[in-house]
Measured scan of single mutants.
Amino acid sequence: EDEVKKIVKRLIENGVDDEQIKEIVKRQGVDERIVDKVLKELK
């Protein structure tokens, strides 16, 4: 989960929008619920 957080944070800093972040992270095989949780925490 910490790995996911790092990735998502980097994507947000690069101006990637939420939908794209979800797609990218899902392609890495991460559960969507984890992605949603991380996005909420970082906003």
Score class of each variant (00 low, 15 high):
residue 21 I to R: 00
residue 16 V to H: 14
residue 8 V to L: 06
residue 13 E to N: 08
residue 43 K to N: 08
residue 26 K to R: 13
residue 2 D to L: 10
residue 14 N to L: 15
residue 34 I to L: 13
residue 9 K to L: 14
residue 35 V to P: 00
residue 38 V to T: 03
residue 43 K to D: 05
residue 42 L to N: 02
residue 5 K to H: 07
residue 24 I to F: 09
residue 9 K to C: 09
residue 25 V to M: 15
residue 6 K to P: 03
residue 23 E to D: 10
residue 9 K to E: 11
residue 39 L to T: 02
residue 10 R to D: 14
residue 37 K to L: 08
residue 22 K to E: 02
residue 27 R to C: 06
residue 38 V to C: 04
residue 39 L to I: 11
residue 30 V to I: 15
residue 9 K to V: 08
residue 14 N to D: 14
residue 28 Q to R: 10
residue 19 E to H: 09
residue 27 R to T: 08
residue 43 K to S: 08
residue 9 K to Q: 14
residue 27 R to V: 06
residue 16 V to Q: 06
residue 33 R to N: 12
residue 41 E to Y: 07
residue 8 V to H: 00
residue 21 I to D: 00
residue 40 K to S: 11
residue 36 D to I: 14
residue 7 I to W: 15
residue 3 E to D: 11
residue 7 I to D: 03
residue 38 V to I: 15
residue 17 D to S: 15
residue 32 E to T: 08
residue 23 E to C: 06
residue 43 K to G: 09
residue 13 E to S: 09
residue 29 G to Q: 03
residue 31 D to G: 05
residue 43 K to P: 03
residue 3 E to L: 11
residue 17 D to K: 11
residue 21 I to A: 02
residue 10 R to I: 14
residue 35 V to S: 02
residue 15 G to E: 03
residue 30 V to N: 03
residue 21 I to F: 01
residue 13 E to V: 06
residue 43 K to M: 09
residue 10 R to L: 15
residue 34 I to K: 03
residue 43 K to E: 06
residue 3 E to F: 12
residue 13 E to L: 12
residue 29 G to Y: 03
residue 7 I to T: 08
residue 42 L to D: 01
residue 13 E to T: 07
residue 2 D to I: 08
residue 11 L to M: 07
residue 34 I to G: 02
residue 21 I to P: 00
residue 1 E to M: 13
residue 9 K to W: 11
residue 38 V to E: 01
residue 33 R to C: 06
residue 31 D to S: 11
residue 30 V to E: 02
residue 29 G to K: 03
residue 11 L to Q: 01
residue 8 V to Y: 01
residue 41 E to V: 06
residue 38 V to K: 01
residue 11 L to I: 01
residue 36 D to P: 01
residue 19 E to D: 13
residue 13 E to R: 10
residue 16 V to R: 06
residue 25 V to P: 00
residue 42 L to S: 03
residue 36 D to E: 14
residue 40 K to P: 01
residue 16 V to K: 09
residue 16 V to D: 03
residue 20 Q to R: 13
residue 34 I to Y: 06
residue 21 I to E: 00
residue 27 R to S: 13
residue 19 E to G: 08
residue 18 D to L: 14
residue 28 Q to T: 13
residue 5 K to Q: 05
residue 35 V to K: 00
residue 26 K to Q: 10
residue 38 V to P: 00
residue 9 K to G: 06
residue 14 N to T: 11
